[in-house]
Design a protein around this nucleic acid. Structure first.
Length: 304
DNA sequence: ACACAAACCTGCCGGC
DNA sequence: TGCCGGCAGGTTTGTG
């Protein structure tokens, strides 16, 4: 479930169940799902078992659970990862890569299942570092003490990831200046997680459609008015997708209870090739760009 | 700085 | 029915 709204749906579902819980045990069925865990820092299962989970935090598409050991369980869903809450004795499904057993103060004993078809996603135990700006590292909902030390700390592999546009500490001016300074296409910039995080192929195409910008226009040529409009469009499409529970094209992209989101019905450009642009009626086209598909209205989104 | 390809993977779908 | 190419929401790494 991979872009910001889908990962946030997972985080929001996970948080009330895992916050304050104790990890009773871990079962790893697919070692490749731990590809990003550095074994020289310790054995994954040993670093996790017995720890208390303090929260569920998200920045962009990265999700982590700070532990009382000072480290964090970092999860990235990749293209096809899911985190599911089950009963401890729930049957093992074929694509189940790992299962955490936790004792939750709110929900009793639970299984947290990591299911991932393509194994592009991963779990790892990571060390934490302080944020550069001293602001909270990511979004964690309202739970927990506001002065907890984990709030301004983030896993090392996330330190280079930019804040996302829904983060109160996101620096609009800095982002707009970066767009102006870059010599690259605007969609490339939107997808660059070091510039702004959380945007993937779907929401890039949707925001570009909304702001009527061609994906390959130089980011420096978009200008302040349209750049602001584009940033606003990203936020707006994120908020609308969140309200709909995210985008699900099939059973692959689901919340912690296995339920699909409904935003696929609200897409204006992504996957809409051949269908009329909701604004002007011109058929949406799909084009290859960056070795993936880009969707745009050939009339509303002309290259300038 | 930036572009590009490759690597990491499985499963589904349409065409033949 | 079965095989094959093409497609899929991502990140990292290496090369030029």
């Amino acid at each position: 479930m991979p872009e910001l709204p889908e990962v946030e749906v997972v985080r929001a579902g996970l948080a009330p169940a895992v916050t304050g819980s104790r990890v009773l045990g871990v079962e790893v069925f697919e070692p490749r799902s731990l590809r990003r865990h550095d074994p020289t820092t310790g054995v994954f299962e040993e670093l996790l078992t017995g720890a208390r989970i303090e929260a569920a935090v998200r920045r962009g598409k990265f999700l982590w659970m700070p532990l009382d050991t000072g480290r964090a369980l970092l999860a990235h869903l990749g293209m096809s990862g899911q985190l599911l809450l089950r009963t401890p004795d729930a049957p093992l499904v074929p694509l189940l890569r790992a299962r955490l057993h936790v004792a939750s103060p709110a929900h009793g004993d639970l299984a947290v299942d990591f299911v991932d078809q393509r194994i592009f996603g991963s779990l790892a135990i990571e060390r934490m570092v302080e944020t550069e700006d001293g602001a909270p590292a990511g979004y964690s909902g309202d739970a927990g003490e506001t002065d907890a030390s984990w709030r301004t700390r983030l896993p090392v592999p996330v330190a280079h990831i930019a804040r996302d546009p829904l983060d109160p500490a996101f620096d609009d001016a800095r982002f707009l200046a970066a767009l102006r300074a870059r010599r690259t296409g605007i969609k490339r910039a939107l997808l660059d997680q070091n510039l702004v995080s959380g945007i993937g192929n779907i929401y890039a195409d949707e925001a570009l459609w909304s702001a009527r910008v061609h994906y390959d226009e130089p980011s420096s040529a978009v200008g302040p008015v349209r750049s602001r409009r584009l940033l606003a469009a990203v936020r707006e499409v994120f908020e609308r997708a969140l309200a709909e529970g995210g985008t699900s094209f099939d059973a692959q992209y689901v919340n912690v209870n296995g339920a699909s989101g409904y935003f696929a019905h609200s897409l204006n450009a992504y996957g809409q090739q051949g269908r009329p642009c909701p604004r002007c009626g011109t058929p949406i086209v799909r084009e290859q760009f960056m070795n993936r598909s880009s969707h745009r209205c050939p009339r509303c989104q002309r290259r300038r």
